[in-house]
Every structure is written in structure tokens, then in C-alpha cells.
């Protein structure tokens, strides 16, 4: 098997990896915000429910969650939903990733939101700002700056975590490399796949460094 053939197959898997990565971010970033509101609400039942849910998701392995999302609906409705529909496996993986990462993100957001001083809210209040204005114009922009470092870490972990999706047979780049290994007894595509991750994460690191610098226009 030639280098270009391997490259093509790996690229194919990498496309799935990237798609899973990007879609997870697209959904988990806003969903995390909603969950963080739930975990901070004054309405106690909802707060405890949300925190309990976050605790479960953060306290159990993502791999287990992948299996649960993939198999449990099938058992409940007596048909393996995700195994039959087109791209069902990918969708199941995406759901598990979004829930898992939204919970992690929500905790980062909560830390960020709780770190904004009471004085900021009071300054807004005496200036006659609404709660919504206060959150979107004063709190959120400051939270964004504070959470960039922990979010960067989490996002880089996500890149690597996407390879877990192959436990429910989503054909990502590692799955592709493994297939080559077992069919052709070629070892080097595994390392080649690793290089893809390194380059991707290297680019992300550069991007986050750039964003962090961009946000450095003020100090607290």
C-alpha cells in the first residue's frame, strides 16, 4: 500500500474526526452556558438536578457514555435506532460528546461567572441596566477572557477524545489506521495518524495563544 493510498484513507477518517470535533464545539459551547445557568439558578430543585447530572457525566468515562447513548435508546424502543439510520453511529457519538463536553464547559463557565465581583453587578444596577444587559455587556465579555485558558485545554483534549468514537464503530482516523494495520500489517500509518493530531493540536495551540493575546487589551 503506497503512501498516497494510506494518506487518502487516513484523510477520510480525519474528515470524520474534524466534523465530530467541530460539531461538538458548535453545540456544546452554547449548551454548556445553559447548563451553567441551571447549576447556578436560585430555584433549588433545578440547581440540584443540574449539578447531579453534571456530577454523573463528569464522574463516569466518556467511553461508557458512548455505549449508553448508542445502545440504550435501542433497548427502550426495541429497535437499534442508531445502528439502522444513515450516519446513526456518528450521530450517537456526537450526542454523547456534546453532552459530555457541555457539562465540562458548564463548570468552566460557572467558575468564570462566579469570579465576577458583586461590585460589577451593583455598578450596572445603579446605572439602571437590566439583568440581560448586565450579563451580555458586562459579565460575559469578562468571563470570556477568564475562561480562555481552561477552555483551550478542554478543547485540545476534545481533539484527542474524538478517537473514542470508534468504540461504536465511527470510522475516524484512528479506526482507519487500525484497519490498515490489521489488513495489511502496516505499522507506520498509526504513527502517521498521530502526526495528524499533533499538527492539528499545534495549530489550535497557536490559535488560542493568538486569541489570548488579543484579549490582553485590558488587565483586571
Amino acid at each position: 500500500m503506497s503512501f498516497s493510498e494510506v494518506t487518502l484513507q487516513l484523510l477520510n477518517g480525519f474528515g470524520t474526526t474534524c466534523l465530530l470535533f467541530i460539531l461538538t464545539l458548535v453545540f456544546a459551547i452554547p449548551l454548556g452556558l445553559i447548563i451553567s445557568f441551571g447549576s447556578m439558578t436560585k430555584f433549588k430543585p433545578l440547581r440540584y438536578l443540574t449539578r447531579g447530572f453534571v456530577w454523573i457525566i463528569r464522574g463516569t468515562p466518556l467511553m461508557l457514555q458512548l455505549f449508553v447513548v448508542f445502545y440504550v435508546p435501542g433497548m427502550l424502543f426495541d429497535t437499534p435506532i442508531f445502528a439502522t439510520i444513515e450516519n446513526g453511529r456518528f450521530v450517537a457519538a456526537l450526542i454523547a460528546f456534546v453532552i459530555n463536553y457541555a457539562c465540562y464547559f458548564s463548570e468552566i463557565y460557572r467558575g468564570g461567572i462566579e469570579s465576577i465581583s458583586k461590585g460589577q453587578y451593583e455598578a450596572c444596577a445603579v446605572l439602571g441596566m437590566t439583568k440581560g444587559q448586565t450579563f451580555f455587556h458586562v459579565v460575559l465579555p469578562q468571563v470570556v477572557k477568564r475562561i480562555i485558558p481552561p477552555m483551550s485545554n478542554e478543547i485540545i483534549t476534545l481533539v484527542k477524545d474524538t478517537s473514542l468514537a470508534r468504540v461504536i464503530s465511527v470510522i475516524d482516523i484512528v479506526f482507519a489506521a487500525e484497519t490498515i494495520l490489521s489488513l495489511r500489517a502496516l505499522m507506520w500509518p498509526l504513527f502517521y495518524a498521530g502526526a495528524f493530531y499533533l499538527v492539528f493540536n499545534g495549530l489550535l495551540t497557536l490559535l488560542f495563544g493568538f486569541v489570548e493575546k488579543k484579549m490582553d487589551y485590558y488587565k483586571v
Binding site: 461590585g119 460589577q120 444596577a125 439602571g128 465579555p141 477572557k145 485590558y218 488587565k219
Partner: peptide, 20 residues
């Protein structure tokens, strides 16, 4: 509440400016 508050202004001991 906002309407009533606007009759008053308050300058805090530790400023509470918006840093961003």
C-alpha cells in the same frame, strides 16, 4: 426598580469600573 434607581447615582469606594 430601574426607573426609581435612576433618581440616584452611586459612586463606590472601589470604583467598580468596567475593566473591559
Amino acid at each position: 426598580l430601574r426607573k426609581k434607581r435612576l433618581h440616584f447615582g452611586l459612586v463606590f469606594q472601589n470604583f467598580n469600573l468596567f475593566p473591559h
